[in-house]
Structures are given as structure tokens and as C-alpha cells.
Amino acid sequence: MPPKIEFCMKALEAYNLKKSFSRNKQIVTAVKDVSLTIEPGEILAFLGPNGAGKTTSIKMMAGLIQPDAGSVRIMGKDPHRNAAALQNLGAVLEGNRNLYWRLTPEENLEYFGVLKGLTRREARLSGKELLTRFNLLAKRRTPVQQLSRGMQQKLAFAVALVHRPQLLLLDEPTLGLDVEATEDVKILVREIAAAGCAILLTTHQLQIAEILSDRIAIIQKGEILAEAPTQKLIQQFSGTTYKIEMQAALDEARILELEKIGLEIEARRIIYVDRTELLYKAFTILQSLPIQAVLKEQANLTEIFLQIVKQGNNLND
């Protein structure tokens, strides 16, 4: 029997996308070179400052903007040449504005389900399932305009998922939501990815990107500056500084010994160790004293983002 070859098709493949627009008789390059791939079930946070080219890139991936160069495949099909590719795509492009506000949630789900190729019966069934899952069943007959912002956003997700796509594009999904609604959206995004749907997410809320994403891509001035698994990127930008917090104040002799090997001490209780090899020397000096905590300095995504964008600016200048 021949060996079984596991073939896993990528949910999204975008290679060398380029796009320039003519604005006021000037050519403006919105996207210089963007390549991204996403595996099924993966969440990719696509980050960048305003005007970096995120939305243009996403719309090229969705087939809504024709790229000047490059190629896009959604589950192996080109959305610019083959409309069937759109069957595997769901998108919430501008918050909750992809809904008919005069229709109810179940009417929106039925209509958009049929628009995505389902029969009305299939759309109704899938819609009901999503309304239950998203805790919106009680509001299924309330016109969208009377729903809260959070509910509208959850419904926008449901509408994008009604035809069970393999790829979901989310442009600023938590923009303008309160804390509770943001938490709901975070849970939903995780659940959707866990069910095998690939998610491309843009957000300015970097904490959300850090918590939700498996991988991060940072774009600036139309170019991807960094792309890596989220944890790897954080590790990469995290320093090697450790912080040792003592339970009680240190005596003068130990402080002198610690300073002798080049460590910094703050308020007689906190010791900063900037190299891993010094950590164990410090432990030897501190032997038998009660330690409150040993912490490794961890960069957060906001610092990483700002650092990368700053480096990108310096390179461009």
C-alpha cells in the first residue's frame, strides 16, 4: 500500500501583491509587496498604522480590488478569475455595516445565505444554528437597527459565516465595541478558528491581536516589515533582563556583592539581572534568603509594533 500523503490546502495564499492608485493626477502606491499565507484554523493578525495598506491588501485578497501584480488563491481558487472562490470566503469589512438595518437577524441571514449560494432552507437552518451559537436567538425577529452595537457585530459575524466559509476576513472587528461585547467577539473568533476556519484579522487594539493571533504580520507603507508566530515575535523582542523581587530588604553586604558583579538594585528589594549567566551568580549571593518572585522581562505587542514601525520609518528615511 503506498504511503498516505497528507495534503493540507492553504486557506489563503497571496503572493507579491502590488497596487497603485491615481489620485489627483499623482500615482500613489498603496501596496508595494505583500505576500501572506494562512492555514486552516489559523488566526493571522495583520497590523499596521493607518494608511499602511491593510484594507487595500484585504480587498485584493477578497477580489474587491484588482491587484496591479501578484496572485491570490482562496482554497486554491483565484477570486479574481473564478467567482466560485468566493464560496469559501466570508468577510466583515466595515464593522456592522454589512447588514440590512431594516431587516431582522433571521431575514439578513436568509438573504445573505442565498446570496452565497445556499438554498433558502439551508440558509434558514444555518442561520438559526448561528443565532443560537452567538446567543442572538431571542433577538431573531428584532430589526437590526434596534440591536445593540455588540449584537450587530455578532450578527455581522454570523452573516459572514452563514455559508460556512474556510476563510474569514475581519477588518477591525472590535472597533467601537464596549468591554463586554469585545470579550464576546474574542471568544467567537477563537471558536470560529477552532472549528477550522482561517481568520485574517486587522485591528488597532494590539492587546487583542496579541491574545487572539497565532501569527502576526506588520505592514507599513505597503510592505510587510515582519511576519512571525506571535509568541516567537514576542520572545524575539523580549530582552534577557530578569527581575528578582525579594521578600525583605537586603543587607548592605549582599548589596555590595551584587553591585560588584554589575547588577542594579532598586529600593534594596528588587534586583535587575541583564544577562542569564549572572542570574545564577545572583542566586548564589542570595542563597537562603526568601525570594518573592523571579520575572523575565517580556515585551508586549504594542512595544514590538512601535519598534518595528519606527525601524521601518528609519529605513525609508
Partner: peptide, 18 residues
């Protein structure tokens, strides 16, 4: 204006048919 237009263009039927 309301933002639903792009969703119509994301239909597999194509905008003209829709």
C-alpha cells in the same frame, strides 16, 4: 453608503446577475 454593496460583489453569482 451603508456598506452592504461590497457584500453583493462577494457573491459567487457575480454582481451583474445579482
Amino acid at each position: 453608503q451603508t456598506g452592504t454593496l461590497e457584500q453583493l460583489f462577494l457573491s459567487q453569482f457575480g454582481a451583474v446577475k445579482v
